[in-house]
Structure formats: C-alpha cells, structure tokens
Simulated assay, not measured.
Amino acid sequence: MIESLLDTINLFLLQHPHLLHVMHTLFWIKYWLLLAIVGLFVYLVYTNDEHKFGATSGEIDPASESIFLA
C-alpha cells in the first residue's frame, strides 16, 4: 500500500516539475532553519555565563534560599 502511494506521488511529481522544484526549495529552507536552530543552541551552551546564576567558582551559598539542591 505504501509502495503504491509513493509510486503515485513520484509519478505526479514527474508530470509536474514545477512542484518538484517547489519541494526542493522547501526542503532546503527546512535544512537551513534546522541548522540555524542547532547553531543557536550551540551558541547558548558556549556563551553560558555562570555568574548570572549566582554561582562563583563552583560553590553555592548555603544561606541562599532561592537555590534548590537536589
């Protein structure tokens, strides 16, 4: 059943090359957007500033009640 559906889609796209070009463009847009999202997360990991969370040199102030230690 899946094979016949894929064959039908392939036949349709071969008969309409402009739709094939649109799909090609949309796949490239999706690729670059996913790459940008991964790049954003990598950037956020490497620019993590430990001082903005209140930790200095790996030690946590036990008097601070805003920090939960698990």
Rank of each mutant, 00 (worst) to 15 (best):
residue 1 M to G: 07
residue 1 M to S: 10
residue 2 I to G: 06
residue 2 I to L: 08
residue 3 E to Y: 07
residue 3 E to V: 04
residue 4 S to F: 02
residue 4 S to A: 10
residue 4 S to I: 02
residue 5 L to Q: 08
residue 5 L to C: 10
residue 7 D to I: 00
residue 7 D to F: 03
residue 8 T to V: 07
residue 8 T to S: 09
residue 9 I to T: 06
residue 11 L to R: 14
residue 12 F to H: 06
residue 13 L to W: 02
residue 15 Q to Y: 00
residue 16 H to S: 08
residue 17 P to V: 03
residue 17 P to W: 01
residue 18 H to R: 08
residue 19 L to A: 03
residue 20 L to G: 14
residue 21 H to V: 12
residue 21 H to N: 07
residue 22 V to N: 11
residue 24 H to L: 11
residue 24 H to F: 15
residue 25 T to L: 06
residue 27 F to E: 04
residue 28 W to I: 14
residue 28 W to K: 13
residue 29 I to G: 14
residue 29 I to E: 15
residue 32 W to K: 08
residue 32 W to L: 09
residue 33 L to W: 06
residue 35 L to F: 12
residue 36 A to H: 00
residue 37 I to A: 13
residue 38 V to P: 08
residue 38 V to I: 09
residue 38 V to C: 11
residue 40 L to R: 12
residue 40 L to M: 13
residue 43 Y to F: 11
residue 44 L to P: 02
residue 44 L to I: 05
residue 45 V to E: 10
residue 46 Y to K: 10
residue 49 D to Q: 05
residue 49 D to M: 00
residue 50 E to T: 05
residue 50 E to C: 05
residue 51 H to T: 06
residue 52 K to A: 12
residue 53 F to N: 15
residue 53 F to H: 15
residue 56 T to L: 13
residue 56 T to H: 05
residue 57 S to F: 11
residue 59 E to T: 13
residue 61 D to F: 01
residue 62 P to T: 00
residue 62 P to N: 00
residue 64 S to M: 05
residue 65 E to R: 10
residue 66 S to T: 04
residue 66 S to K: 15
residue 67 I to N: 06
residue 67 I to K: 07
residue 68 F to Q: 12
residue 69 L to D: 11
residue 69 L to I: 14
